[in-house]
């Protein structure tokens, strides 16, 4: 027997996919029992979608703040800050990262250089 596929022929009416007996009779009850334990996403929590953006804005603001502080201190305490940098090996940028509790500041640096 030759087995061919012809898409222009009528689609077979027989459905080869079967379901266990009573599957559709019990599905809705099982599903609704599961749903009863799940709260729908309420619009009141819509503001949470802005949380990552707000976090990023805070980090940017803090970074700008420390850049500004560095510039101001650079004028009057230039020598002292240079000494601090040389002896302690900690730049103001690092201090900013410390302040923001970002222990792996190098990750940010790598990210910036990669992109």
């Amino acid at each position: 027997m030759t087995r061919t596929f012809n898409p222009s022929q009528p689609v077979p009416t027989h459905d080869p996919f079967k379901v266990p007996e009573g599957y559709f009779d019990t599905f809705a009850d099982r599903m609704m029992a599961r749903i009863a334990m799940t709260a729908p996403a309420a619009p009141v929590f819509g503001w949470l979608r802005w949380l990552p953006l707000a976090g990023a804005a805070c980090v940017t603001a803090l970074s700008l703040f420390f850049v500004e502080v560095t510039a101001v201190q650079g004028g009057s305490l230039g020598e002292a800050s240079a000494w601090t940098e040389e002896t302690s090996g900690t730049s103001y940028e690092d201090q900013a990262y410390d302040y923001m509790m970002m222990a792996n500041a190098h990750i940010l640096t790598d990210y910036e250089s990669d992109y």
Binding site: R3, P12, H14, P16, F17, K18, V19, P20
Partner: peptide
């Protein structure tokens, strides 16, 4: 739960 003939 598959009840198709050879072609199916």
């Amino acid at each position: 739960y598959f009840d198709g003939d050879e072609i199916e």
